[in-house]
Design a protein around this nucleic acid. Structure first.
Lengths: 198, 198
DNA sequence: GGAAACCGTTCACCTATGTTAACTAATTAA
DNA sequence: TTAATTAGTTAACATAGGTGAACGGTTTCC
């Protein structure tokens, strides 16, 4: 990919919902640093201050919390066109409550707080776009609480198969288990039951 | 309470974090309708469009989702100085995913979308204050997901006793169970175990 | 002021998921 | 190319929480 085109996906993605000038778009991309991540490499680490937010341009990451007992819980998988980073830590200078790790070789565009806030201030379409994104992710988080509480692991898995087949195909099973909030053995058992029922 | 003073609590509350003129504060309060709610009365109903956001000035409400099986899950309790309403539904004109119901005789200040957005546009301190509040509630929601997944019901209950004793004192136990994501019988059992251990 | 509805507790039994551990398959690194 | 590691499966057993039912104590409301 030629360097001038490195932001072509981001451009297309934002253009799906917003209208902007070339000039504004260049202003926006100028705040980003292109960062390649090797598989298993970390973008943010739980407990550290999260200094960057980033846009996923290639590959896939997962955000996960590790509890006192050492168990991991995966909060979300971030594919193409997702934003990643712990906003709480990014804004409030508080230790991040989860880590973000590449599950494949990936490429992200990252920006620190100063650049980020300058961009929000100076580029109206970006401010609006970001506000909507933030609201959506708040909604998704609320929905996830509801689902977490009201569905059995099997229901969650079936729903994942139906609504997010790309996750099931692309992500190793023990991460999916941790996303569903169960142990890998339990997911194995659920899969076995399902296959026997057919 | 004299009518001129009905907003005195809101004024004090916002003044804790922001500075504003009398004029701006009056502009803000002019968007609200004062609404009394009888115990058990609903402010929003799951499935309906949520037309108002509201500020709790007196009493207490709970927000809860009812699933297909008819089981309720309480998402949060809203006391003095909380905002209530399903923002997703309020903004996106989508059916509300939860109901909000008064647990005591209460008083709220509500505003519809038009008034709300006008206020955000015209009153800078309110826009800023609201942005921060929204971020905090997003953070709290994320934290609740983490807690939900990584703690046993007993741990959650002990934490509630420690961090939110006013909830335990003020709210009937079966609502607390539904807040912890368990059945009333299970909470009863947990309480029994705890009292026997001492 | 009495009937009806609701609330909290307890109990016996049930079920989903966790735990430990052993085994095989797949992937990675030397 | 093999050795080492990691991933997934299975099974036996343990445990937290759900279910249904019964009981007494409170509210609520005609």
């Amino acid at each position: 990919m030629k360097n001038e085109n490195i932001f072509s996906n981001l451009r297309k993605h934002i253009a799906e919902t917003d209208v902007f000038s070339n000039e504004d778009f260049e202003k926006l991309t100028s705040i980003f640093t292109v960062v390649p991540l090797k598989k298993k490499e970390f973008f943010t680490v739980q407990g550290d201050h999260c200094r960057y937010l980033a846009f996923v341009n290639e590959g896939c990451l997962r955000a996960f919390h590790t509890d006192d007992k050492g168990d991991e819980f995966t909060m979300y998988f971030a594919f193409l066109n997702w934003w990643v980073g712990d906003k709480t830590s990014f804004y409030s200078d508080v230790p991040a409550r989860f880590s973000t790790q590449a599950l494949e070789d990936s490429e992200i565009f990252q920006a620190d707080k100063k650049k980020w806030e300058d961009a929000l201030e100076q580029i109206p379409f970006f401010e609006k776009w970001y506000r909507v994104k933030t609201r959506k992710s708040y909604e998704a988080t609320q929905q996830k609480i509801i689902n977490t509480q009201t569905e059995s692991a099997e229901e969650k898995y079936l729903k994942l198969l139906k609504n997010n087949p790309e996750i099931v195909q692309r992500i190793p099973q023990h991460y999916i288990a941790s996303y569903l909030g169960i142990k890998p053995q339990s997911l194995s058992r659920i899969r076995k039951n399902l296959s026997e029922q057919k």
